[in-house]
Amino acid sequence: MSAETDVRPARPFLSPAKVRLWFDRLLVFVLSVGAWYVVANTILDPFWISSPELVAERLWRITLNGDLWWHSSATVWQALLGLALGLVVGFGFGLLLARYPRLAEALDPYIMGLYSLPRIALAPLFILWFGIGLLSKVMMAFSFVVFIFLLNTMQGLKEVDRDHIDLMRSMRASPAFIARRVQLPAMLPWLFAAARISVGLALIGSVLGELLGANRGLGWYVEHASGRLDTTGVFAGLTALMIIAVLMNQAVNLLERWLTPAK
């Protein structure tokens, strides 16, 4: 195919729309941090809400002394393990339930019941069962994300185009071939949707586990700071969490773009 017959427009690395989007995002950042700065320096004592310059200074300091890495790596690692476990178990269990609809219908109310349990109420049990080490935080993150993967796997499998499957069956494709070439690619968007929701939830689970018993992690850092009425420390920990969540979400987006070609 020659270049001139190709009518698809080339995608420039920085299109005007993209530049504008980043400008808008920057604007939101500047305005909100600016408002925080003004309030913290006029009507409210930084004791209550700290202030942007204090938080920035704290983040810089804990970056240099290694505290930030020490705490955030623990939180992220627990969240990632919980995510991976949730993906494997949720996906596997989802496939199983899709294969046996009768089992799925029998379990449906129980799954929904478990799904709506407040995890914070489970936390003491998790500590009892899994200790106050890594495992209890991983399981906490897992308990948040497993249902998302389970439900999206079942729904995604249900939404696969029947005609695509029939077409492959008419050409005598084996069930394994259909699973690999039709069902899995069709489900990828559902799995990525689940992953995008789960990134935030896994971090929440990881931090929640740390709040209840730990000696490390951003959750522990925030808890520890608030115990000493160190508002700046609380805000620094929360800011770090937000940045990590955004970065992890971006990683999922990149992975999605890499694995699923544009439609």
Binding site: D166, L167, S170, M171, R172, V182, P261, K263
Partner: peptide, 30 residues
Amino acid sequence: PPPGVGFMFQRDTLLPWATVSENISIALEL
């Protein structure tokens, strides 16, 4: 489904994530 039978639907039923070539290639694979 017996061997040597090709089905064509009213809807094209091309796999949306695969190119025209890849869609044709699947039949050759099968």
